[in-house]
Each structure stands twice: as C-alpha cells, then as structure tokens.
C-alpha cells in the first residue's frame, strides 16, 4: 500500500517535471520565433537613434513620433491611402476567388464530364507552375487590354479559379462529404445552383473561410504583382508603400518604417482572430476527411 503510494507520488512528480521541461522548451522556442515581431512592435515606439543604439527591447523614452510621421509618410499621400488601396483590390480578389473556386470545385467533385481526370490533373499541374513563368505573357496581355496601372490585373484572373490550390482544397473537402444530402435537396426540388447555395456552401463553410483568409493574407503581403502593374504612387498598396519608405532617403527613418509595418500587420491579425475558430477547423477537417 505504502509502496504503491510512493510509486504513485513518484510518477506524479515525474509527470510534473516532464511537463515543466516540455513547456519550458516550447515557450523558449516560441519566444525566439516571436522575438523579431516583439522587437518590431517595440521599435515603433523608439526614437530612431535608439533602435540600433540599444539592445533593450523596451523603449527607454517611448515616443509616438515614429507612428505619427510614418502615418504621414514621405510622400504626398498618408498611409491611410495605401491601406485603402490595398483593400481596393484585395476585397474583390477574395470574393472572386471564393466564388470561382467553389463553383469549379463543385463541378469537379460532383458532376460527370468528359475527360474529367485530365482536366483535374491539368488544374493540379498549374499549382506546380512557377508564378514567374507567367509574368511576361500576362504583362503583355494586360498591356494589350489597357489595364496597366489599374487594379484589374490583380483581381480579374481570380474570377476564373486560377488558384488551383484553393480548388483542390475544396474538392478534397467535398470528397469527404457523402452526396446524400445533395440528393435529398434535389428531391426537395433544388436545381444544381440551389443545391450549391442552400446545402453545399453551408456545409463547406469552414473551407470557404480558410480560402478567404489565405487569399486575404497572401494578397496583403503580395509585393511582386502590384510592383509590376501599378505605376502611380497614388495607387500603391501597403507593401509597396513600405518599400518606398525605405529607399526614398539615404538615412531611413527605421522607426517610421517599423511603425507602419506594425500597422500593416493589424488587418491580418484582426481577420485571423475573428475567423480563427473556422480557420483551424477548416484546415484540419479538410485534410482529415479528404
């Protein structure tokens, strides 16, 4: 009895030590990974000379100078313009991506069509295609259309389910869902689009939210495409504005750049935390069921 009691106490103690080590390591690694982020946020509130002059994370004399000046930017537009510009193409891009990807995925997952295997393979192959291969032909095409220096080249392609990865993701998700519900809806009198809207879309909502989130974050961070297609500074999105702030003058005001980077992070963070529940569910259930 006593022996068992001791053994049990030993086991409990070992368990606690184990947990301590485990969480210690996790927290340590987590801090290392997040350190640059903390540093960036902290540096936004430092005067410029302090950023490289001191190793302290915490600002010695905190100031809003970087944020205020950064917001004004060195250009004729304030940072608000650039944020707004970003949303000018990101919102249509997200909407078009979701609509087109879901439509195409529904077609692949549920309808019989000649050569379906081949089309699907082709679509998956486009995922593997390096983006840079298409840059020049696309540029020439959009130039012919007279779309340079507009947001159209940034989001119109998304209306045609060009993001094969998203289509693939939804197809996998749909494959894990038995079609009985949709058949019941057909008997209840739905046509294919009504089935999609009333039954399929609510069921695959986690996948849809995941797509929207991914597309939102990737687009906000996208640097290359806006750089290629936009030439007027007044149309620049956040990513380009940040770059501009770095190279307008020789002596970069790093505190301003970092303050703007911090602000640029906020939309992604806010959207992510709002949708976190669905986002995580979407990724896991999509992969487990698929």
């Amino acid at each position: 009895m006593n022996l068992i009691g001791t053994a049990r106490r030993d086991a409990a103690w070992m368990g606690r030590v184990n947990a301590l080590i485990r969480y210690g390591v996790l927290i340590g690694v987590g801090l290392i990974m997040l350190y640059p982020l903390f540093w960036m946020v902290a540096a936004s509130f430092k005067p410029n000379h302090e950023i490289f002059g001191s190793v302290n994370l915490w600002p010695k004399d905190p100031t809003l100078d970087g944020v205020v000046k950064g917001w004004r930017t060195g250009t004729e537009y304030s940072f608000a313009t650039y944020l707004l510009n970003s949303f000018m193409f990101i919102i249509p891009k997200v909407v078009l991506t979701v609509v087109s990807s879901v439509l195409v995925a529904y077609g692949f997952a549920r309808f019989r069509m000649p050569g379906k295997q081949l089309w699907f393979a082709l679509m998956v192959a486009t995922i593997l295609l390096p983006k840079s291969v298409l840059l020049i032909p696309q540029y020439l095409m959009f130039r012919e259309l007279g779309w340079l220096d507009t947001y159209l080249p940034l989001y119109i392609p998304c209306a045609f389910a060009t993001d094969g990865f998203f289509v693939f993701m939804v197809v996998q998700f749909l494959r894990g869902i038995p079609p009985d519900m949709e058949e019941a809806a057909v008997i209840d009198g739905c046509n294919s689009l009504q089935v999609l809207w009333h039954v399929v879309v609510p069921v695959i909502m986690p996948a849809i939210i995941s797509i929207a989130l991914f597309q939102f974050m990737w687009s906000l961070n996208d640097f290359l495409y806006p750089l290629i297609y936009l030439s007027s500074v007044g149309k620049y999105p956040v990513a380009l504005a940040l770059k501009m702030a770095i190279d307008v003058t020789e002596a970069t005001a790093w505190n301003q750049v970092l303050a703007m980077s911090t602000i640029a992070l906020l939309p992604s963070l806010i959207v992510f935390f709002l949708a976190q529940r669905y986002f995580v569910e979407g990724i896991t259930s999509g992969s487990v069921k698929g």
Binding site: P178, D180, M181, E183, A184, P202, V203
Partner: peptide
C-alpha cells in the same frame, strides 16, 4: 419522397 440510409438531414 425518399428516406436515405444516412438520413441525409441538412446539418445547418
């Protein structure tokens, strides 16, 4: 009208 083996109710 049809009753399916899996019931096929609309979950939402």
């Amino acid at each position: 009208a049809m009753v399916f083996q899996s019931y096929a109710l609309y979950p939402h």
